[in-house]
Design a protein around this nucleic acid. Sequence first.
DNA 1: TATAATTTTTAGGTTTACCTAAATTTATTT
DNA 2: AAATAAATTTAGGTAAACCTAAAAATTATA
Lengths: 217, 217
Amino acid sequence: MTNSIWENYLKAIYKLTQKNPDGGYTNDIAFEMNVKPSSVSEVLKKLSENLFINYTKYKAVTLTEKGKQIALKTIRKHRLWEVFLVEKLGYKWDEIHPMAEELEHIHFDDLTERLATFLGNPQFDPHGDPIPDSNGNMIVNKSIKLTAVKLGETVAMTGIDHDSAAFLRHLNRLGLTLGTKLTILEIVEFDKSMLVRMNDENEFYMSAEIASNILCR
Amino acid sequence: MTNSIWENYLKAIYKLTQKNPDGGYTNDIAFEMNVKPSSVSEVLKKLSENLFINYTKYKAVTLTEKGKQIALKTIRKHRLWEVFLVEKLGYKWDEIHPMAEELEHIHFDDLTERLATFLGNPQFDPHGDPIPDSNGNMIVNKSIKLTAVKLGETVAMTGIDHDSAAFLRHLNRLGLTLGTKLTILEIVEFDKSMLVRMNDENEFYMSAEIASNILCR
DNA sequence: TATAATTTTTAGGTTTACCTAAATTTATTT
DNA sequence: AAATAAATTTAGGTAAACCTAAAAATTATA
């Protein structure tokens, strides 16, 4: 198996396991990886032989410690390169994902560590996601979804739960970035959309769909 | 064919064509690529179908304009990342080749240009090799081999003709870097080794093997 | 609980990039 | 120019990573 391919599978399984501790299901992995479930089945067999995952036929898969470390290292590289692209090359947060997706597979441990030092050992990437340290430890993000914030409360945006370029571009257009102050002025009963005030300045309605992908604290 | 694989083949052919304008031979490409000649034959057929090379069976191959542009772009990326690794991450010139060999295959044109800007649009990489510009134009390096310098003359080191880590480490040990002043004090008739004075300071003998891989002006 | 629906795996096929071994072409000697 | 040597290509094979279609297992529903 190619390096970067199993890194991507392990990342996908890691992501699914974060959502559901039971583990990742073939179908969901296939969706994440943009391949057919039958292809996933084959790969799972090999990842299991190489002790990267715990796999029993027809059951959800989880990462072994070995697999988890690789997933976290890949996430670390991805997020560090994202910081590089924004801080050093001047990209916007909605432009960096595809590039980081390739850069994350450059596999020289020492390069990763020097990059981290060069960037000042950042703790978060440009989307507010925590960057695992070189031992695979990651700050637990205690943020909650904006949809869980109660009427009248004020929070600061700390991250997002979705990193599609389309979503990020919409946030750009609204002027929403990490740190933006948000006050919930109204929750519409009909569709759960919210009237929010932004940085004590302007107000606008936001669909529940969007609010559920905004993390805050 | 995978992106990075044909980039490597085109780079190898470019390199061979620089040495011999007839073009690159299957055997030599195989040596450069670390594969068997039969594998090269197959790939040449496909590169030719895709109009990257001019290929007639049993003849030396040359790059088409299309192929040459890809080779030069890959060389540009390689050399820019080398500058990044040395200037920004503090690597030494003998450590960077394997990393640049992977980074060169990151294929976002805009990223390359932003990287170049970030680095101050360097003209040369850390080994003294010229960096092609974004249109594929490269400064012609008019350097000559140290073995071609006449007795008594003084030159400055401008590059090297070999980038193996072992060779570079030896230069480090001797204290030879780009810009070092070298005066030829003696040429030994027996083995063509040279007594050189370095920066008007110390003197030492250097084998013709080494001298022939040092470029100067 | 039996049947239907869904999920997962298996079987069999494709393409890419490698391989070895054999055949062919080109180059070099005698 | 013929024989030999060397380089190149072709033929046939492997492994990885994908695919479609069919079979098997699991889960949901009547």
